[in-house]
């Protein structure tokens, strides 16, 4: 089971996460009396990078219309800010007393804080990106349920013209997301459901077309034609339900993380 659910998050956090465990092992006994080097310069570099991240994070919030991101991201940025304070404290303390157990503990605390803060920022941002894809999926679902408004061929042309770009974008985004995931099971499921949507959509459009053609030649008194019309209507509704189900499954999987093991139990 991968620890990080996307390749991007994994590439950013995995190296430092491994190093932190080394630091913890070495400092397991903070009173070991070993001397620490002057860490002012590397701590300063972390501080500068963190300042930049905090600035970019606030800009991201300002430019986003995602209310959840606007609420969660600043909290994660504060965690990074707090972690930097611990690192600064560690640096000052260890400079005056290179054996200081307090300084060493502050160093570990700061490093852990950086990892947790950056992790929270990445998760918050990632969830916001997922919400954008989910929004696209929901737009496609909305389109599925307005077929009742299609009364003639011109309407169908307009319908297809409007649906195509949203559906294409949804497909592209889900496809890209699938490649980003580290969890193989989630990836497989996304591929399966997306393939279903792709293969069902032409049949769905055809069913509307056949329905309209049949409706155009419909004789009020012909019971046999009436029967055929009902069958076509049923087939169209069945396809709508199927595509709706597939997209809802895509949404569900998009919102899963590696930690949602119970979902797959």
């Amino acid at each position: 089971m991968p620890v990080f659910h996307t390749k991007t998050i994994e590439s950013i956090l995995e190296p430092v996460a491994q190093q932190i465990s080394k630091l913890v092992i070495l400092h397991d006994d903070a009173d070991n009396g070993n001397l620490m080097p002057d860490l002012s310069l590397p701590v300063q570099v972390v501080q500068q990078a963190a300042d930049n991240l905090i600035r970019v994070g606030h800009e991201t919030c300002t430019n986003s219309d995602d209310s959840l991101l606007k609420r969660e991201l600043p909290l994660a940025l504060i965690r990074v800010e707090e972690a930097c304070k611990s690192l600064q404290e560690a640096s000052v303390t260890l400079k005056s007393d290179p054996k200081s157990p307090f300084g060493k503990r502050k160093l570990i605390e700061g490093e852990r804080g950086i990892l947790q803060g950056v992790s929270a920022i990445l998760l918050s941002f990632d969830e916001s990106e997922v919400r954008k894809i989910v929004h696209l999926c929901k737009q496609v679902i909305e389109y599925l349920f307005i077929t009742e408004l299609i009364e003639k061929m011109d309407d169908l042309v307009t319908y297809v013209k409007n649906l195509t770009p949203v559906l294409t974008r949804m497909t592209r985004e889900v496809d890209a997301r699938e490649k980003e995931l580290t969890h193989q099971e989630h990836r497989n499921k996304l591929v399966q459901h997306l393939e279903q949507v792709k293969s069902l959509t032409p049949s769905f459009i055809s069913s509307i077309k056949i329905y309209l053609l049949t409706l155009a030649s419909f004789q009020q008194n012909d019971s046999q034609e009436k029967q055929v019309l009902f069958c076509i209507q049923d087939s169209k509704d069945f396809l709508i339900k199927r595509i709706n189900y597939e997209i809802k499954e895509i949404i569900r999987i998009l919102q899963l993380t590696s930690y949602d093991e119970d979902e797959w139990a």
Binding site: T8, S11, I12, L13, P15, V16, Q19, I20, K22, L23, L26, H27, N32, N34, L35, M36, P37, L39, P42, V43, V45, V46, Q48, A49, A50, N52, L53, V56, G57, E59, T60, V80, L87, L107, E111, I114, L115, V118, I121, L122, F125
Partner: peptide, 29 residues
């Protein structure tokens, strides 16, 4: 995205800091 690059810079810098601290410790242990 800018935020991902900025986050990467922070973890890289944090990695360098850990290396500086642990290398010195290893030498002394």
């Amino acid at each position: 995205e800018q935020i991902l690059e900025a986050a990467k810079s922070v973890t890289n810098a944090a990695g360098v800091l850990i290396k500086a601290a642990t290398t010195a410790q290893k030498e002394l242990v």
